[in-house]
Design a protein around this nucleic acid. Structure first.
Lengths: 210, 210, 210, 210
DNA sequence: AATGAATGAGACTTCATTCAT
DNA sequence: TATGAATGAAGTCTCATTCAT
């Protein structure tokens, strides 16, 4: 391993350390109430150091989303690649995978939507922006692939698989967001799991060919 | 019309003027990037004046949501009260109504979620908080009523109607949010309508009793 | 009574109404935390009206002090004019009079010192400034007269009576201010009366000719 | 000297730099009319920097008082510890010491009273509040000790020494405040010294046992 | 004379970002 | 590379004062 390569690896390690800290802080306080100093403290680094690895706060946030998106894709591909499941089982596995990812990092949903803000996008480097688009498209693509298979096998209704993937993702994130927002007023968190379950039962029933 | 009454009306007009300006600014820049001065400028008033009508920025934002929520409820009740439609037609009309409201004020969805922030809730007056809770509960209640009717008539599957209402609302807002967030990158807005349509077809199919 | 005279009298009545309200509000919250709107509300007038009677907030405050100073002078002159008391009895009566005035308006002491701020003085009209000087000098003069009498009669030590008047006034206000400031931390208010009593015993003993 | 120690010293130096600037500004304009920006400018720092060293404006003000209070105590203990003076000489030395402190920082008196405001106290950290109480109590305690000694030795009248200490302090601050407030109108500052001198002659005469 | 809605300057404070060490 | 003290722009909110009615 060359010296340059070692440096590169060291640099990547540091980046991850910061991202992990940022995740904890953002989870705790949300984007706007989290300060760069909070994150630096959590990472046991100084604020200045953060800027050696990330251009600005928005880019740090986006990188965080990127990382979890990568994790999501791995899980999705694993589901998709499993040839022993029929399409319906795959959708169920999809559901499981998404929930795991959500539990691993509940921020994922909110992250994805924070990225929507055009004010945020303005502060991102082109490179990062492209990467986000790629991963986003890719993960939707994998999901769409699963639906495509179902359609091809005559199990699912004949709709555009990309649209189905969007709906799947929307339903999942919608339920998460909605139940979370209600739970702050109601304090009822267990309800989320139940609602998700029913939501997917309905979704899958609606998906099946008559 | 008494002098007091006229004053009251004048005051209400001014409130609306501010709310309309705030809506435009919040739509444009999002909550955090919008400043009270932006809103004042948009309303052609001075910053101080805003505080004569709204206690603080959070309360101005919440009032904005309240207004659209009231409009939503009127639409929902109109659907529910129509005795000439069967449950399935009602769900379709529900869908239409929600979309109209969304077109009237695309912020409604994001508003509803912004209200979730406990930091936001802390700054609201008790009165406003109670009003929000009431309206929120009420609108969900109307939706649930429609599903209840479908279940009673043996048309829909036998699930808790409140859960079905939550899912309906989640699916709707999920699709809106998701397609909006994608459209910023893709610039493709027409797709939203189509996706919503498919989403509800699937949902309704899944809802029907076998 | 001419119409002009009646108007003048009406105007004066209004001024007093505002001063009374201001006293209550300033007593309650202190100068800086009291707003013109607070005072207007207490006087059951509108903020704008206050400015028809007083040039600005500082001048309103100063006028308030003036009024209590006038009351003080009446009390002092009454003591001084009583020919049945010997000098020592007069100093004791002085003490009583000051305490009565203090109880009637505890703000008097703080008022007198607030007037010291050159920033405050800058905002006062020349006329008011002169009036304050006059009354201030006059009240000190009456006190000094009492000490002069004691010196003339050979009862008090031979010091400049104006200086003695200043000391008397300083001791009184010093004890009031100091005990008030302590009482906020200690919550002990009864101590004030006792301390004042001892203070004057010591003062009078020190005043007497050997 | 370790690196940490040097940093600590540097930090303390900066704190003092700010306190010195604040003293000048507060002296000049009083608490309310002084802005944090004024102080920053005087200290040749940016406003933000002030907040690295002091939690808020009130705490900056209180720290300023604390500093001078510490200096006062040193002087008072020095007087008290001198075994070659009799009680009367000690009270005279007390007087001198207080005047020196006053000349070193004329704000001390006003500071002590500003601290009284419960609005101010609310904004102070518990630690600072406790420190102020301690020092305040301590300085009064030292003064009371001197009077106690005079009483024990049969030189002073038999009154509660704490009360005498309060009176001493009140008389001193009363004269200072009163003469300062007059001098703004009269422009006569030399008179202060004389008045203080007479005040303490009278006080000491009144203190002595017959 | 009286009103009170509106003003807008300005206060305090925060925090993303920079830069000398 | 890492630091962290310092910056200073910007945000929210208050309130003395004005002015059209």
């Amino acid at each position: 391993m060359g010296i340059r390569e070692r440096k590169e690896r060291e640099r990547e390690r540091r980046r991850q350390q910061i991202i992990v800290a940022a995740k904890r802080v953002f989870s705790d306080k949300g984007f706007n109430k989290s300060t760069m100093e909070d994150i630096a403290k959590e990472a046991e680094l100084s604020p200045g150091t953060l800027y050696l690895y990330f251009k600005n706060k928005d880019e740090l946030y986006a990188s965080l989303s990127l990382r979890i998106l990568q994790y999501l894709i791995i899980r999705l591909e694993h589901v998709n690649g499993n040839n022993e499941m029929d399409p319906i089982q795959k959708v169920e596995a999809l559901n499981e995978a998404m929930f795991d990812v959500y539990e691993f990092d509940p921020l994922i949903i909110i992250n994805m939507f924070h990225l929507q803000s055009s004010e945020t996008l303005k502060n991102l480097s082109d490179e990062l922006l492209r990467e986000i688009e790629d991963l986003s498209r890719k993960s939707l693509g994998v999901i769409a692939g699963i639906f495509q298979e179902g359609i091809d096998k005559g199990v699912f209704i004949d709709e555009h698989p990309i649209a189905l993937a969007d709906i799947f993702w929307s339903l999942f994130s919608g339920v998460i967001l909605w139940e979370s927002s209600k739970s702050i007023i109601n304090g009822n968190k267990d309800y989320l799991r139940d609602t998700l379950k029913i939501a997917f039962e309905v979704f899958v029933r609606g998906l099946k060919k008559a």
